[in-house]
Write a protein that binds this DNA or RNA. Structure first.
Lengths: 215, 215
DNA sequence: CCACACTTACTTACTGGTTAGTAAGTCCCA
DNA sequence: TGGGACTTACTAACCAGTAAGTAAGTGTGG
């Protein structure tokens, strides 16, 4: 967790370790994104930073550990555009999801890495499967809570488990649209399609029209 | 194409070639499903049929060709429960999609293979990417046409491109739900969630409640 | 009806390539 | 002068694909 050394140091020049690790993480994200975890090699990652694969192992110990740090790195990047630091609730959450989709349309590499690793993670004993599983369950909880919040605001009583069903559908549609967009960017407008799909699910769940402002 | 010899032969015993190929295809589906294409080896596939990897190559020539036949095999299996042979249109199509989801809940292997290969296919130069891309575009066309058909039945005029947007969302939600279900079958009722999501999207698209009978 | 020609379904053995990981040494900066 | 950031050199494993051989059919001509 606490990696220390975050520009708080008085001395000017000491970017080496933390900085190099960050470079490697970015490179690994690109490599795992474009080739997958199994097919993307440490040699590929190392070459992008201009070192040998043994140099990468010096910093991360093993390929599995590197993957773990890449996933955490993605999480960090993912929320860094949120100044509030905290994930919003209620309708703000859905606006946030659409905004993220919009940003993602210009971050193909990260989207690809996420899609590839998520798909790969359903294989037996994949090192990322617990991360993806955990991620899904956290997201499910947050989105379901937001659905309940909006329902409360509108005085709608939801059947049992309905919020979770809606949350699952929202997560599913976002992942699925990313896949289609990656394979054929012309066929899908990522942000627009995401907004449309989330609105549809919320509207059907809450029984009254839900709109998400197109930023 | 024409593989000839389809039980029309008078002589009783000659299942060897065609039968062996089916065995290998089934094994390859399991292997690619549980390990992915790159990580699943010909040795793995061969072992499941009780031969060597060279024996597999004798039948399929190369690993890439084997993958292609696996994908076609999946298509064949996928529609074989349709007696009409033809994919239905209108509301029947959506009923068919839900029914398929229901069947899929008992065919984890095939779902896993599809999910893994679809995810892997977004990597650079993957041999399955054109298949997946083609599959998406065909599905998109068929589902969009079904949406238009239902809209016509209900005297609803759809904005331009709305049918395609709905189709994309339907495809996305199905793929996404499969992923979640594979990673945590307890958290998602595949058929139920699929029905819910498709109903939501159709309802929002057509402006009036759409129900799909739960078979 | 059977022997010879040919095909099919493999196996064994190998090649050339790639992989993650290790160990030991070198260079450079503080 | 000492420690971190590497490199070089290596290993052991695994991979797809090829080549050559074998054993068991299958078809056919006499």
């Amino acid at each position: 967790m606490s990696e220390a050394t975050e520009q708080a140091a008085p001395k000017a020049k000491r970017p080496t370790r933390a900085h190099r690790r960050e470079e490697i993480l970015a490179a690994a994200t690109r490599v795992f994104g474009s080739k997958g975890y199994h097919q993307g090699s440490l040699v590929d990652v190392a070459a992008q930073v201009g070192i040998t694969h043994a140099g990468v192992l010096h910093h991360f110990g093993s390929k599995d550990k590197l993957l773990w740090e890449v996933l955490e790195y993605r999480d960090r990047v993912d929320v860094q555009h949120l100044e509030g630091k905290h994930i919003p609730g209620g309708m703000d959450l859905f606006r946030h999801l659409v905004t993220t989709a919009q940003l993602n349309a210009d971050r193909r590499g990260i989207v690809q890495a996420y899609a590839v690793l998520t798909g790969e993670s359903v294989t037996d004993g994949h090192p990322a499967s617990s991360w993806v599983g955990h991620r899904f369950s956290v997201l499910r909880g947050e989105i379901a809570e937001a659905v309940r919040e909006v329902a409360r605001e509108r005085d709608v009583t939801l059947p049992d488990g309905e919020a979770e069903r809606a949350a699952n559908a929202v997560i599913a549609v976002m992942d699925g649209l990313q896949l289609q967009w990656l394979l054929d960017p012309e066929a899908v407008d990522l942000a627009e399609a995401t907004r449309f799909a989330i609105e549809s699910i919320l509207t059907a769940t809450l029984g009254s029209t839900v709109r998400i402002a197109s930023t």
